[in-house]
Design a protein around this nucleic acid. Structure first.
Lengths: 189, 189, 189, 189
DNA sequence: CATGAATGAGAATTCATTCAT
DNA sequence: TATGAATGAATTCTCATTCAT
């Protein structure tokens, strides 16, 4: 089996960036953690900055895939159901990929993220906006800038879950229920 | 007139951290921006890490003061009114202190923030939890972990405002109206 | 009573130089240890280097005074007795002023000691050479360069005592007896 | 041909420490003298302090090797002969490796040498103590703590030779003769 | 005289990146 | 391709010295 060095590097980088932070993680540490020579990293990622940018994109895409995964199967569910499904996945994502989720948020603040990278990162969720738009047309979602609503719900969810994760409280079904209720109430008309 | 070097340093640090990012801001740049000798910074903040930690605490306290400022004047207003006032202040804070607000969020994700600093940062908002508690007793706020609710509303608000700020869209009264509506709906029973 | 700042500074410097070493002892630490303002040191010693030079001279003179102290009272004792008295005092000096003794040795290696200071330091023991000279004339001291003999005995003694001090072994009368025997045998004809 | 960077660094350090003193020798100067990049030094010696400690050990070992070199060839010589041979080598060491010898003595007084290093440094000469022990058994060496005697002789020799070296006087055969006589007389019964 | 905050040149140390193997 | 020793520019941090009070 071919060992996928590229993936090893990404995995090591994620771990170390999460644990120590970007600037406290030298390339040499990544190389060691990934069981790879220093130079090898540079075969895949020409600079540390590009490594960061690619990492961001990779994590973002993974997140999008995870969150939107169920959506295809429920093409003709109601708007409310679709949103609930998405949100549930967001909650699950934070629970199962806490490290990546937190790191992703850190990365999104980086002033050195390329504009290009930033734009790409946003695209992943255009699908979601369409659901909100449909909901507004159906009169069950609040009117106004639909992105605003989407950002509110997502921000609320994320912050909420982070609270539980940070305090190491298990997210039980009733808790999950409440979170989703908050989210729906915040955007419903 | 006594020039307050400490404050000069904090101000310069805030600006540069916001514009360039933490690790892209050498201490020498802070010194120059603050019109202060390199060594002077180290008289007030023994390491760069401590500077970051203190900056976080200072910004957090300032934020808390700003957000909670009106609260004293409205001791016997209804829970809903109190929350609306707080949220309005949160929105205003993001609008008037955008740099500090964004930076504060960045800092809160840093793995290098010490636990102690993180704990201190949270204390500032205990006052708010009491309002939620009262609302739950009165039956107008959703039951469940009250911190969860508070985090949801605050996360939603922050993410929402960040959307406008990032896209340089002015927050008009109707927009503000909608934001508050989302927040209230998310926590109301 | 007038507090003698100059002396306080010298005392603090001796202690810190001994414990931490020259370069690990900043002027600020000396100021603190001496309960004196930073600037005050500079009123007495214009630079750190001069402080070091003066300290060397002070310690050297103190050592000389201590070692040669008994000599005046025994002007017409035999050469052997005089030397034994001196050596006994050397031993005592190492025992009672261990810190100063060790520090003095450290200082004597400093490449930045002024030539002038170094010369002065040596002068203190010219008296001793005369005794050796007399002993050679009397035929009871080995012939040859008398300074060589003096240096041998003193080096032997010092190294010997340092061994006991370093290993925290008490120098009992029989031990002291042996040391003096070694010294005398090394120079006697 | 493989250039041994480690050795280059040690050599450069020895030279500069001897000429300028420890604290007057920045790592950058060592790098330049050794024709090596700054960072290279840190690949071999993690801190300046460790460089100093290792240098001490290296010089000490080299000294021991030099001084004890002849000893193997003369396994069944008399105690007196063995000691004379050792002392002769000590004298030669000072003459041929004056810089290293002086530096070694300087280093041995440093408060920043760790205990571990100091202990290791001493081990090199355990062989010598055995000779003294044998001499005591044979009744030709003074009774008492044998280390004390060894230290006396060595301290005397070193100080003696330093006198000549410092004053740039050539050590002629008769001078050498006298030095050895002093040493032997000091320990012989 | 005494003070100690302020200074900035200089020192130690780090780390992204290169390149010979 | 893979490696990791070597590099030195950049960064953090120190500390002798000054000077306004």
């Amino acid at each position: 089996m071919i060992s996928n060095k590229r993936e090893d590097i990404i995995k090591a980088t994620t771990l170390l960036f999460y644990e120590k932070g970007l600037s406290a993680t030298p390339m040499s540490a990544i190389a060691k953690e990934a069981n790879v020579g220093m130079g090898t990293i540079y075969n895949y990622f020409p600079t540390k900055e590009q490594l960061i940018n690619e990492l961001y994109l990779i994590l973002k895409e993974k997140q999008a895939n995870y969150v939107l995964h169920e959506l295809e199967k429920v093409k003709d569910f109601s708007v409310k159901m679709k949103l609930l499904i998405i949100w549930e996945r967001i909650v699950d994502y934070y629970i199962h990929f806490t490290q990546e989720a937190i790191l992703l948020e850190q990365l999104s603040f980086l002033p050195n993220l390329d504009k290009e990278t930033q734009e790409k990162g946003k695209e992943y969720f255009t699908e979601v906006f369409k659901i909100y738009a449909q909901g507004q047309q159906e009169g069950i979602i609040k009117l106004g800038n639909m992105q605003q609503l989407a950002y509110f719900a997502k921000g609320g969810l994320a912050n909420n879950v982070k609270f539980f994760v940070a305090n190491k409280i298990e997210i039980t079904p009733p808790i999950r229920q409440l979170i989703l209720q908050c989210a729906w109430d915040s955007v419903k008309n």
